[in-house]
Deep mutational scan, measured.
Amino acid sequence: TQTTHELTIPNNLIGCIIGRQGANINEIRQMSGAQIKIANPVEGSSGRQVTITGSAASISLAQYLINARLSSE
């Protein structure tokens, strides 16, 4: 079954999640098997909405990979 998880990434950290020309986010997508959508910046908001869709296992793996990127910054 597909589930969806949403999280907010601070604007100053979204770059390390996306990577150069989307390299990091594509790697996270491939490794986790989850669909990951990053919302466009919202004016006045300090973060970007990230939506992860997939199986429970792929979502938790995607979250783990995202958190690993954030903590390495």
Rank of each mutant, 00 (worst) to 15 (best):
S32R: 01
L13R: 09
A23E: 13
A57V: 06
L13T: 07
M31V: 08
I17N: 00
G33T: 03
S45R: 08
N67A: 08
S60K: 10
L61Q: 14
Q49G: 09
R48L: 05
A57G: 08
E6S: 14
G19E: 04
Q30M: 08
Q21Y: 06
G44D: 09
R20P: 15
A56H: 11
S46L: 14
Q63A: 10
A39G: 13
S45V: 11
N26F: 05
Q35R: 13
A62W: 00
Q35T: 12
Q63F: 07
T4E: 09
L65S: 03
P10R: 03
R48W: 07
Q30L: 07
G44C: 07
S71A: 11
S32G: 01
E27I: 07
Q30A: 12
T8Q: 10
S58D: 12
V50M: 07
L61F: 10
G33I: 05
I52W: 00
L13I: 10
L61A: 12
I28C: 02
A62K: 00
Y64W: 07
T4L: 06
I14W: 02
A23L: 06
N12Y: 11
P10V: 02
I18N: 08
S60G: 10
G44A: 06
Q21L: 04
I18V: 04
N67P: 01
G22P: 03
N24F: 08
H5N: 07
N26L: 05
C16G: 08
N67K: 08
T53F: 05
C16I: 15
A68M: 11
C16F: 11
R69I: 06
A39E: 08
A23D: 10
S72G: 11
V50N: 01
R29F: 06
I28S: 00
I36L: 04
Q49E: 07
E43H: 11
E6V: 15
A62M: 00
S45H: 06
L70E: 02
A23R: 14
G54F: 03
Y64G: 15
G54T: 01
I14L: 08
H5Y: 09
L7Q: 04
I25Y: 04
I17K: 00
S55E: 09
R29E: 13
Y64I: 05
Q21R: 12
S72T: 15
I52F: 02
Q2S: 13
A57I: 08
V42I: 12
L7P: 00
A68F: 04
L70S: 02
G22M: 07
A57M: 07
G19I: 03
A39I: 11
S72I: 04
L65C: 01
